[in-house]
């Protein structure tokens, strides 16, 4: 068989293989099955969608772009309502259990996230619509991309950015990315975003896709490697 013929055949196999990889890897968007999904939402939940300046796809990137990386436990939180039913932020006060990057002397820090429980009866705005109704009724949990905010009583490993504003404290690196819950008793990492949403959002929730179901030390080891 001539050399050019061999190269042509090899090239065709390469192209077919690449096509198969692309088709399976990309059309399925996330082929890795995550064994654990915890539904943290007790109120009806709605999904809002956002546009971000920066997102990340590895623990290294989250670590490098964070001011504080720590294990925390949420003590309490307050909801900050805006003018509209879906305009809600949550300010959580967390106990710092272990610092992997940042000030090791921190005991408690505030973390502010977009989303949270919206009690419509407390809205400041007026949602008059063509139907003539005013404020909506009820309580709903507003999530960003299906990711609920951190919840009191639960423990998380968080990657945080300092807002430099004592009112807001820290925000989550990558907005919805730099937080992952673990069971304090078993140490198992838990997914908090529904499987179907994680499957549809590519690598947005890569942290949960890679580590949910595993022991938290698997993530801690990754963090320590980046130091």
């Amino acid at each position: 068989m001539k050399l050019t013929t061999k190269w042509s055949i090899a090239g065709m196999f390469l192209v077919v293989g690449a096509a198969a990889y692309l088709f399976v890897g990309l059309t399925s968007r996330n082929s890795s099955a995550v064994p654990v999904a915890i539904d943290e939402t007790t109120d009806p939940a709605v999904v809002t969608h956002a546009s971000y300046e920066k997102l990340y796809s590895s623990v290294v990137e989250l670590y490098q772009n964070s001011d504080l990386v720590a294990e925390v436990k949420v003590q309490d939180q307050e909801t900050i309502l805006g003018d509209t039913a879906a305009s809600v932020q949550t300010l959580s006060h967390v106990l710092v259990k272990q610092v992997y990057k940042g000030d090791v002397n921190l005991k408690t820090v505030p973390i502010t996230e977009s989303g949270g429980i919206s009690d419509f009866s407390k809205l400041k705005g007026n949602e008059v619509r063509s139907s003539g109704h005013e404020k909506p009724a009820g309580i709903e949990e507003v999530t960003r991309e299906g990711s609920p905010v951190i919840k009191p009583g639960y423990s998380y490993i968080v990657f945080l950015k300092d807002t430099k504003d004592p009112k807001w404290g820290f925000t989550i690196t990558g907005s919805v990315q730099g937080k992952i819950r673990f069971d304090e008793g078993t140490g198992q990492i838990l997914a908090t975003v529904q499987n179907e949403i994680r499957n549809e959002t590519g690598d947005l929730f890569f942290l949960q896709n890679e580590f949910a179901g595993k022991d938290k030390n698997s993530l801690v080891d990754e963090i320590k490697k980046t130091k």
């Binding site: 300046e53 977009s114 619509r129 005013e134 009820g138 709903e140």
Partner: peptide
């Protein structure tokens, strides 16, 4: 609206009547 997370440039919510809904 002012949100603390500067990384979030904008967001969209969806309403069925007066209440936010799951799009």
């Amino acid at each position: 609206e002012y949100h603390a997370d500067v990384n979030e440039l904008g967001w969209t919510a969806f309403y069925d009547g007066n209440s936010p809904c799951d799009p």
